[in-house]
Design a protein around this nucleic acid. Structure first.
Length: 726
DNA sequence: ACACTGTGAGTTTTT
DNA sequence: CTCACAGTGT
């Protein structure tokens, strides 16, 4: 095999086949090449069967890319090689043995949105009053990842609330099992449980995976660490690649200790450092090193550039965020004229909210852009609705899915009915779906509607055996008249929704050719594990994304915007002692750039509509020696006088508000008013009109009134109506 | 049952 | 500011 394109250290990394190996791969040091070449080397030179290889990544995109690159390097059947994300691998293996854990093999994967709405549902119970669902979700995840103990009190929370939190944790897990669903953490946790508790399975996987490779090792959490440890226990061929300086997911459980302690955890480990950087020129690396070297506990690495010196890094202070955006737009135009394609340019920011102003300016300058993150395709309402239908067809225990669509499109099943069903289901210890099947016992006014819904679902479930997911989607749309849910929207909104559904169908088609039986399960599984950057297309356009999602990518030109204290580093991270992670995030951002790097800051910023306020420069700017930087600012620098010479901006609020109007309060006594068909009436808002018809009794008496320009149905008991004598 | 309105809360990052 | 939710009106 030809390894001549690799440098000495890279070759060593590829050839060190046996035993534990830690590769400390600095940014841009060619770690993907090392990984793919090593896999190829194992297959070609060492005669390893691809079936015995397990390669784990964090994103589907990375897995995909790795697989493609290996395919190009070797001439072997790779269908049985496991190159995939931690979560997908676990989901896949769990489907074989789900029964051992009390699940069926078509269990549903709940994403974090789903988890949240499940928690909200549980929190409706008065017992959990005072618990914030989002906080609870975070805590539950921490507990599952072994970061908090179930019994450990949450600081600052009263004892009573802690007890309830613990109960909520249990209730949440019970409910998941009842709904035949796993959340993201469960995928890893249950796989680990299976391996720990079932000797046969453990030995099976240990025997199978003679070579285990892990990408982005610095991002593994405790469960992932335990997983790879147990799987590689037998053959001890564990090869991890990572960069402690790029650990930026600590807040969601990534444990930087995993990489820092690798040599201790896996005695006899070989450690190979890849310090030569092929991506950025030296000036950019100098800046990156200036920022990262302030961290105390890190693996010592000195990335050096294999390239020649380049231009200095540019710094720009803008008076406000609009001119910051304008600066970025103008520079992009300039660079474009030098022949750089838009797709090789990226604008990075700390928070999604910053993108709006930048987008505005790019549009103004006619610069095409692609934006990642925010509400993704799979979070669109119509997409989620259709997925919920599919989920329910696939797994009738998913109350989550049922609740989402039981009244979408509207079929007259409202809150009262749902509460009734929920209570019945809880008493009888059954799913909502079963409760619906028993709706004749449940009673209630909407019974016939539930029966109709159940008949619809029943039909769809039958059809699901005869057709693939994409046809099934058509069937759902048609049978439910789903389009009626958005018939009142604007034309282009309707078109967009249609297009999204079509897109979903296209995605579904990929699963049809293969195993027909599991197509639906597989499709749903892949949908829950997909991410935004996975669907990145190669179309022309400047890339706008958060610093986090930029990890692993590279661009000719990179703009990092909003370098301000409080924003980047975020005040929250500073407050919570996670400044090092912000620093690493900055390092990640800087090292995305190959040729040109722009750092910008706005002297004043409008944070969530409370009016513009002055900012302080990010400490990261101050960490970079001035000799590495070229200041392009045109505004006066006035750091020291900031407090004095900017206009006092006391937020002016009107002392009174026009919001509250004198209200017409209908009195019950006015019910006594005897409305008759043909009466002329006066309405507070609509003016004069004539009663055309009256129906209903008591509080539910409704009059249809023809006003000047419109006809309205009004509750006589509530409407501000008076009879006018004429 | 549902649409609408006003209020309150929360704004980091995501498999 | 923008979203989600509760409360209110029909």
């Amino acid at each position: 095999m030809d390894l001549s394109k690799l440098n000495e250290m890279q070759q060593k990394a590829v050839r060190t086949v046996d035993g534990p190996v830690l590769i400390l791969a600095g940014a841009g040091s060619g770690k993907t090449s090392v990984l793919t070449n090593r896999i190829a080397y194992l297959i070609e030179e060492c005669g390893v069967d691809p079936y015995n290889i397990l390669a784990l990544t964090f994103t589907n995109k990375a897995a995909q890319e790795m697989k493609e690159r290996v395919e190009r390097l070797v001439d072997a059947d790779l269908r049985f090689m496991a190159i995939s994300t931690f979560h997908s691998v676990c989901a896949k293996f769990l489907r074989y043995d789900a029964e051992l854990l009390g699940y069926t093999n078509s269990f549903t994967i709940y994403d974090s949105d789903d988890s949240l709405s499940l928690i909200k549902r549980l929190c409706k119970d008065d017992y959990y009053y005072g618990i914030k669902p989002a906080a609870a979700r975070h805590l539950i995840s921490r507990i599952k990842n072994g970061l908090s103990s179930e019994n450990e009190a949450v600081e600052g929370l009263p004892e009573e609330l802690n007890r309830r939190m613990k109960r909520l944790f249990e209730a949440y897990n019970e409910e998941l099992i009842k709904e035949n669903a796993m959340d993201f953490d469960d995928l890893l946790l249950n796989m680990l449980r299976l391996l720990k508790e079932n000797e046969g399975l453990r030995e099976h996987y240990q025997e199978r995976f003679r070579y285990v490779l892990v990408d982005e090792y610095q991002d593994t959490n405790r469960i992932q660490y335990e997983l790879i440890r147990i799987i590689s226990e037998k053959h001890r061929n564990i090869f991890v690649v990572g960069d402690d300086d790029q650990s930026i997911y600590g807040w969601r459980g990534a444990n930087i200790e995993n990489i820092l302690n690798f040599e201790k955890d896996f005695p006899g480990a070989a450690v190979i450092k890849l310090e030569q950087n092929y991506r950025s020129h030296q000036k950019i690396l100098d800046c990156a090193n200036a920022v990262i070297s302030r961290i105390e506990n890190r693996k010592d690495k000195i990335p050096w550039s294999a390239r020649t010196e380049g231009e200095k890094v540019k710094l720009y202070y803008a008076p406000n965020e609009y001119s910051e955006g304008e600066f970025i737009a103008r520079k992009i135009k300039e660079i474009r004229e030098k022949g750089i394609q838009y797709r090789n340019i990226a604008v990075l920011y700390r928070t999604h909210t910053q993108s709006r102003v930048i987008e505005e300016k790019l549009r103004m300058y006619g610069i095409p852009y692609r934006i990642y993150g925010g509400t993704s395709f799979f979070e669109r309402k119509e997409v989620k609705d259709i997925i919920a239908y599919l989920t329910l067809i696939n797994n009738q225990n998913s109350d989550m899915a049922l609740l989402r669509i039981i009244n979408v499109p509207r079929r007259g099943i409202g809150q009262t009915t749902i509460t009734r069903l929920t209570e019945y289901a809880a008493d009888a210890d059954m799913s909502l779906f079963e409760a619906c099947l028993n709706c004749d016992t449940v009673g209630g006014a909407a019974m016939s509607k539930i029966i109709a819904f159940m008949e619809l679902m029943n039909d769809l479930m039958e059809r699901s055996h005869e057709m693939g997911p994409s046809e099934l989607i058509d069937e759902i749309i048609e049978r439910t008249d789903y389009r009626s849910t958005y018939e009142d929207e604007e034309r282009d909104v309707r078109d967009a929704r249609d297009a999204n559904i079509e897109e979903l169908k296209t995605a579904a088609m990929r699963f049809e050719a293969e195993d027909e039986d599991n197509a639906l399960t597989e499709f749903l599984s892949s949908l829950s594990l997909i991410t935004d950057t996975d669907t990145m297309d190669e179309n022309e356009g400047v890339t706008l994304m958060t610093l986090h999602s930029s990890k692993g990518l590279e661009f000719d030109t990179v703009f990092i915007s909003g370098l301000e204290e409080g924003l980047f580093p975020s005040s929250r991270s500073v407050d919570e002692g996670r400044i090092d992670e912000e620093r690493r995030l900055c390092y990640v951002g800087i090292t995305r750039a190959k040729d040109r790097l722009f750092l910008s800051r706005s002297l004043s910023r409008n944070m969530y509509g409370s009016g513009p306020s002055d900012t302080m420069p990010s400490r990261f700017i101050k960490d970079i020696p001035a000799r590495y930087l070229e200041d392009l600012s045109t505004v006066m620098r006035r750091e020291k006088t900031d407090l004095f010479d900017s206009p006092r901006k006391e937020t002016v609020r009107p002392g009174f508000s026009f919001r509250k109007k004198a209200e017409f309060v209908p009195k019950a006594t006015e019910n006594a008013m005897d409305f008759k068909i043909g009466d002329t009436v006066e309405h507070n808002a609509f003016g004069r009109g004539k009663i055309i018809s009256i129906s209903g009794t008591g509080d539910q008496r409704i009059a249809t009134v023809q006003f000047m320009n419109q006809q309205r149905k009004l509750f006589l008991a509530f409407a501000p109506l008076k009879i006018v004598e004429d």
